[in-house]
Simulated scan of single mutants.
Amino acid sequence: MEISALTKWPKALADPSGSRASKPRSAGLTMVIDKGLGLHSFAELLETADEYIDIVKFGFGTSPLYKTPVLRSKIELAKRHGITVIPGGTLLEIAVSKDVVPAFFRQILTLGFDGIEVSDGTITLGRKDRDELIRDGSALGLRVFTEYGKKLFGSRIDAEQFAETAERDLAAGAELVTVEARESGVGVGLFDERGMCRQQDLESMLRLIPFPSRIMWEAPQKEQQVALIKALGSDVNLGNILVNDVMALETMRRGLRSDTFDHRLAYSDYMI
C-alpha cells in the first residue's frame, strides 16, 4: 500500500458516529472559553483543533486587559480559522451598569469581534433592555448569543421562565440561548454542588423547549459533557469548554472514547 493512501483515516475510525458535520455547522457547536491565553498558545490551539471550535469567548472582562496588538491578532487569527469571537457577557453587563453601551459596541467593532453575549448573570436586565441589546447587536452585523441564569452559587433554573426567555430572545434576533453554568460548573444552574447534572431539571427544560438545537449548555466538566451528550446526542451545543479539553470533547461527540462509545446518536433523534 502506498504511503499516500494512509494519510487519511477511514471514516469509521475518524467518526464512528457517522453524524459529525464539518464547519460551518448549525448544531453540535463547541464554544471555548479563553481566560487569558498568550498569542503563541492561542495559535497552537487553533493549529491543532480549529476544526472542532466554533466560537471562542474571551471570558468575563479579560478583553480590556490585553495589549491591543495581541488582542487584535488573536481575534484575526480565530476569524481566519472560521471561528466566531466574542467578549464575555460580563463585560457587556459592566457597560450597561456604567451606562457606556455605545462605547462598548464601538470598541468591539473596532477590534474586530464578530459576536456578543447578552447576559444578566450579575446585574438585573429588564426585558425591554434585553431586547434592545439583542437588536442593537444584530443591527451592527454581530452574531448575538444570549445567556440565561445567575452566577450566584446555589442558583437554579426555572424551566418555564427559561423557555419563555429563550423564545423571546430568539424572536428578538438571538442565534443561540446559553444556559449559565459559570466556568466552574459547580452549584449553578443545571449542576448541583458536586457538579452533577440535575436530571429532573434537564427533563423539565426539554419538555418546554421546542427548539433544542438553538440552546447551548455551558458544561466545563467532563462528566457534564458526557451527561449532556448521552441525554441529547452528539450534536448538542456545548459551551465554556476549557482550551485543553477541546480534543477530548470531540472524541466523546464522535464515540471515540469509552464514555460515549454506545451513544452515537444525532441531535434530531432527541427532538421532543
Rank of each mutant, 00 (worst) to 15 (best):
L29P: 14
G185A: 06
F153M: 12
E51N: 14
V85Y: 03
R253Y: 10
F113L: 05
K67P: 05
T251V: 00
Y270N: 04
M196P: 00
T124P: 04
G59Q: 04
K23H: 13
V226Q: 01
L71V: 10
A159V: 08
I157N: 01
G233K: 15
E175I: 00
I229S: 07
K11C: 09
S234A: 14
V96T: 10
S63Y: 06
S22E: 15
Q224W: 14
G233Y: 12
G38K: 01
L92M: 12
K23E: 10
G36V: 02
A78M: 03
T124W: 05
A181S: 11
M1S: 12
F261V: 03
Y66H: 10
W9R: 12
A27K: 14
I134H: 11
E160C: 08
G233P: 00
N240M: 04
M247G: 08
D158M: 01
W9F: 12
G112I: 00
P69H: 12
V236R: 14
D129A: 14
E164W: 01
D99F: 09
G173Q: 10
G189I: 04
L6H: 12
G126P: 05
D169T: 00
H263K: 03
P10G: 05
G255H: 07
G154C: 12
M247D: 03
S138D: 09
F58D: 03
L109C: 14
G187R: 01
L13K: 00
G185Q: 03
S184I: 01
P87Q: 03
L92F: 09
P69E: 15
V246G: 03
D54M: 11
D54E: 04
V100T: 15
R106M: 14
L77K: 07
